[in-house]
Amino acid sequence: MNLIEIFSFVFVQRALLAGVLIAAVASILGVFLVLRRLSLIGDGLAHVTFGSVAFVLLVGFSPLYVTLAALPLVILSSLAILKLTRTRKIHGDAAIGIVSSIGIAAGILLASLSGGYSVDLLSYLFGNILTVNQNELILSFIVFLLVVSFVLIFYRDLFALTFDEELARSMGIKTKQINTVLFILTAVAAVLAMKVAGIMLVSAMLIIPPLTAMQLSVSFRLTIIFSVVFSILSVICGIIFSFLLNLPAGGTIVLFNVIFLLLIIATRRILPASR
């Protein structure tokens, strides 16, 4: 099967489009999260997503609406992480750990209540971008527009907040509101990334492309752009190779993310002054 044949399938076209949109969303938000040392928020929210999906499947939602139905709980959990970090003098990693544990524990209990791990639940654990439905594609497009608009409009605020939160507050930036929007969008991105990479690998989509871009260390603006480029390239290469070699798409996409990271690190070592 050649590339033209692969791209002629509607479900592949839909997967590529959704994958590119979700990759862009996760990699943009990932830059702000990684630099604020909240890298593992993706992991924590993915575990909550597991609990939410288990609940949604137990209640009996149609698979068409599982992603949408899982959203409210994941958004609330994301805001809980933010709140815990702010009010209880708990560090970000510990706050993520608490919410993550609740999510995974709830998931295990709910899966057990529904008579064990169903095929549906396992498909969310490992992800399958090729099963993206019309609703999820529309949601991806809306979230992509929201994230890009948010970053373009509040770029200066987000940059200041990421660089130094106290400094941002001294500039009159409404850090509380900006943080709230950032955490809500991260929750939505985590749920969408679950579809691409699976619950097990959501954090990879948020962490690895920004880390790859940071190896190039040119400027903040270019770090965001490079992060998006590496993430999108990984999704495209991952989908094509998974199709050609009959491999799981999620794992292949994440492997490409890692390959790009290693390539950039190796190039930087060979050409240390290349900037």
């Binding site: 630099l35 040392r37 940059f159 660089f163 130094d164 939160e165 106290e166 400094l167 001294s170 871009a213 940071m214 190039l216 260390s217 040119v218 400027s219 903040f220 270019l222 770090t223």
Partner: peptide, 13 residues
Amino acid sequence: PQRLSALNTYFPC
């Protein structure tokens, strides 16, 4: 500010 709260040496800006 007296000092940046936590300037990450690798902050890309």
